[in-house]
Amino acid sequence: MELSERIQISSGFLLQAPPGEINDVLNDVRCIINNDEELQAGVQPALREYNLEQFITVESPGNNHQCIISEAARLPASDDESEERFIDPRAKTSFIFDHLALEASDPQPHELDAESEPLRSALDNATQTYLTAHFHDGVASIFSKGNGVREFIIQVVANKYNPSNYWSGRWRSEYTISFDEGKVTGKILVHVHYYEQGNVQLTTAHDVSFNLPPGITFSDSSAASKILALVEDEESKYQISLNETYQEMSEKTFKSLRRALPLTRSKIDWDKILGYKLGAELSGSKEGHVASS
């Protein structure tokens, strides 16, 4: 198999890596490439795509908080920059991100749009309050389009890794708030992996769209808290629907995948299971005795 084919296969495995298990998958595909230098160079685009799609978080350089690596955080490439940079709006800095080592470096000041910053900052504060109430170690970044475009992007990610109990999970949500259109559009993505004595993955995608109430405007000082209340309502309804779906799957779907009764069409009395086994052995011995005689 050609090296290019092996790199393509390895990249496909990486893009499907469950939450928190990208390094495990990377170590596994080393056997496919069998050359660490070629591996790093070949799968770098896949790692970058994975990190941006999965809202990978990183410690903001020089700050005591994490921020999200995503397409919204990526700065447009400039002629004098050899490496792409990402922004941390809360810290008003930009940095270089290593997609293999998952580390940020070379922080530099980054000026945000002055007109949008008051509302963007208010949305950031309201989102942090929402995270504290509903997410364990959740991370959020809020971006503004600026340049006269009254549009903001809220991104939220929460990870829970529990390898000792063989499961991991990730919640991602993203909302685009357009004051020019008067609406909010977004999506909620959930990915859970259970792998104790098996390998089961659950992925969901839920689209969100609702209009901004007439009282919420770009200049409204309480707009941020009102918008987050609407987001909270949408995510709470989706959480409830997930719980109901899981309950239905447990009671109906999973039960339909197996026989209600064994082939004998009668239920087994588990308290007498040893008696069944002993009876079968005695029956077998008797038949063998008759045959030999």
Rank of each mutant, 00 (worst) to 15 (best):
Y238T: 02
Y238C: 08
S4T: 11
R30Y: 05
D207C: 00
G42V: 01
E151Q: 15
M249G: 11
T57E: 05
I7H: 10
N147T: 09
S11Y: 10
E84G: 06
P61S: 05
R259L: 14
T93C: 15
A91N: 09
T57I: 13
E248I: 04
I153K: 03
T129Q: 12
R258Y: 11
L189R: 06
G182C: 11
A224W: 04
E251Q: 15
H99C: 04
E111Y: 07
N64W: 02
G284L: 11
G42C: 04
S219R: 09
T245P: 02
P76R: 08
I153Y: 10
L100Y: 12
Q155L: 15
F143P: 03
L274H: 11
E181A: 15
H136C: 04
Y50V: 02
S178P: 10
H134A: 09
R120W: 07
K252Y: 08
F218H: 14
F135C: 05
R258H: 07
R74T: 06
F179W: 04
N162T: 04
A72Y: 08
Q44R: 11
G148Q: 05
G62V: 08
S10T: 07
Q44L: 12
P262F: 07
V156S: 03
E196N: 12
Q16C: 07
A291Y: 12
S221N: 14
Y130P: 04
I69P: 06
A114T: 10
A72M: 11
N211D: 14
Q155D: 05
Q40K: 15
H134I: 03
I32K: 00
A77Q: 12
L123A: 09
P107A: 04
E251F: 08
Q54N: 08
S222D: 09
H134S: 06
N147F: 13
E37R: 05
E248M: 13
P19L: 07
P214V: 07
I87G: 02
G20K: 05
H99D: 06
V156R: 03
W171D: 01
L119E: 10
S168R: 00
K92D: 07
Y161A: 10
L26C: 09
D269H: 09
R170G: 00
N243P: 00
E83A: 09
I177S: 01
L52Q: 12
G148L: 13
L100K: 14
F13G: 07
T253Y: 06
S221D: 05
